[in-house]
Design a protein around this nucleic acid. Structure first.
Lengths: 184, 184
DNA sequence: GTCTATATTCCGATAGAC
DNA sequence: GTCTATCGGAATATAGAC
């Protein structure tokens, strides 16, 4: 892994750990054992780093989508949920949730890329649900987009709320999301 | 309104606007046309102010709960949802969501009070749902607690995600939450 | 590409006058 | 209870050597 990649990875972890406005270049420099000035060599400003963190998530989501192309809707749903499973294991929140609460403080470019990420996930899940309903493996009464919004907010919110009410609640929500699609 | 109350209100708005780590005493002082030092007279530290903002929400939720005591579950559900309706009108996010993403940076006392607030809302909604199911006005298959968690995460998440995908999505989620309880 | 050193700004907090 | 003035620390960012 290049230094640049390591900085992006650490920035991502810090944003989802503490929030965008709480982490500093010093957090990254001490963790990677490099100096403040070295980070600025790779990223002129903190906002530049923030944009690249979001872009990295866009890239990873696109990879995830491709990795399950052509598979049945159930497999694609599992892939979608795996995003939040791994985030929960890290004891972090998701990038969209973390930056949405800080949205009025971030640069326009960052906001734009974050909206792109959020919409990419939303459109993907909407298609998964629509396909699954058509094939008779998923059941729901809402439009596919609304159902997708409900599932996304369930998972995003579960990561945040379960920090306060206990980890069991995350898994209770996760299981209920899956079960609701199978019986209605 | 006393200066102290005005500071708490402004602090609340700033936390839900920009996030706890993004607002400064200067934001409050310029808005209220008082000086930095005056805020410190009322609140020794920023964390002290943060704790009082959370306590104010606890007080308001307790008031809201009392205001609909003895009413039918549908009325109580509307009262619950009104929390998020007014937050959406303000173009802010909810306090639990805003502080949950910053949780690892806040003082233990603040975290403790926030957990108290989150649990108070959760227990209240759980009881509303259990009562409504028993009386035959609400329908759901999950445990009342899990259903409450799903509705809370829907609304909390709707405030955040709709900042990126559009306000219409907030209302689509809100309506679907209500409709799901009436038919299943 | 990484370093030392430093400029600059901002923020939380305090001392002491009124 | 609010003010002026200031301290001390932290953070982003830059200049310039290696």
């Amino acid at each position: 892994m290049t230094t640049r990649e390591a900085i992006i990875l650490k920035g991502d972890h810090l944003i989802r750990d503490k929030g965008y406005n709480a982490f500093s270049f010093y957090d990254i420099s001490k963790s990677l054992k490099i100096k403040n000035a070295s980070i600025h060599y790779h990223f002129a400003t903190k906002a530049d780093l923030g944009v690249e963190v979001v872009n990295q998530h866009i890239f990873l989501v696109e990879q995830l989508i491709k990795s399950v192309e052509g598979r049945v809707p159930e497999v694609k749903l599992k892939a979608f949920l795996s995003i939040y499973d791994s985030t929960k294991q890290e004891e972090r929140v998701c990038l969209v949730g973390s930056l949405a609460t800080d949205l009025k403080t971030v640069e326009p470019k960052m906001k734009k890329q974050l909206a792109l990420l959020a919409n990419k996930i939303l459109v993907w899940l909407t298609q998964i649900l629509a396909d699954g309903k058509r094939e008779g493996v998923f059941m729901f009464r809402e439009t596919a987009r609304t159902k997708a919004l409900m599932i996304i907010t369930n998972m995003l919110g579960a990561l945040q709320v379960s920090r306060l009410t206990g980890s069991k609640d995350f898994f209770a929500i996760r299981e209920a999301v899956i079960r609701q699609l199978k019986e209605k």
